[in-house]
Design a protein around this nucleic acid. Structure first.
Length: 230
DNA sequence: GCCCAGGGGGCTC
DNA sequence: GAGCCCCATGGG
């Protein structure tokens, strides 16, 4: 069950660090204009397809779905996954992802009769739990849908976020997704635009320079990482 | 040519 | 519930 109850930890240093990181990343990279989907439904499809895949390859798959007239819940429900898989081949694990897309559009049909506006009016915790119950939708994918398709103030955690935050010396209570998410949601203002941009900037940094090792001197967070190591 | 990337499901213990 | 493997490909 999704809960975001505050635990009231005293976290002023974490708050200012998270604020500093955001400021530096925004100054370095500027607005990222996420999520690059034309409609909420397209964002949902992209959220599944981008699992372990570069966005460039997701775009190819989305274009294929559009040109074959499959960018709608009803159209995808009408096709067997064997026919969807070749169209999304560029996104890795395409057979599995074709089944995931089918599960997602089945859910959309059952939950709101394909009316996403209606779906997104649901209580955010309820909606999150429903999304998590869909086969192929885990926490990161559910939260990406909530933030970037449904415009809910939910912070998205991914591998880049964990690596970057670990490296600057901030530790969540434990290594579970919920603890990571709580770290952000308890220490930065619950602002949809901020959550959107912050996650996008962390991904940008992660893809661009932040490798498992060593520290990168051109990174806008280099001196914070150095302090953390010291 | 090799190894890593990295969400999510599923299985084992 | 922790630890491992699988999905399958692109990129360094």
């Amino acid at each position: 069950m999704t809960q975001w109850t505050a635990k009231c930890t005293v976290t002023e240093p974490v708050q200012s660090l998270l604020e500093d990181i955001y400021r530096r990343l925004f100054e370095q990279y500027g607005p990222q204009h996420w999520w690059p989907g034309e409609t909420p439904f397209e964002v949902m499809i992209g959220a599944v397809l981008t699992q372990s895949a570069a966005w460039k390859n997701v775009e190819t798959a989305i274009t294929n779905l559009k040109t074959t007239g499959l960018m709608s819940p009803a159209a995808l429900r009408g096709k067997p996954s064997e026919e969807i898989a070749p169209l999304i081949r560029s996104t890795v694990y395409y057979n599995v992802k074709a089944r995931k897309l089918k599960a997602l559009v089945d859910y959309i049909g059952n939950a709101c009769n394909d009316d996403l506006d209606r779906l997104f009016k649901k209580d955010v915790r309820q909606l999150r739990d429903e999304l998590l119950a869909v086969w192929g939708v885990g926490e990161e994918t559910a939260d990406s849908i909530l933030l970037y398709a449904a415009n809910k103030p939910v912070f998205v955690i991914d591998a880049y976020t964990r690596r970057i935050i670990n490296r600057i010396g901030i530790q969540p209570e434990n290594d579970k997704y919920s603890a990571w998410q709580f770290l952000f949601m308890n220490n930065i203002p619950a602002d949809i635009a901020l959550f959107n941009e912050y996650h996008a900037l962390l991904v940008r940094l992660g893809k661009e320079t932040c490798r498992p090792k060593p520290l990168c001197s051109s990174c806008p967070l280099f001196d914070i990482c150095l302090s953390a190591v010291a």
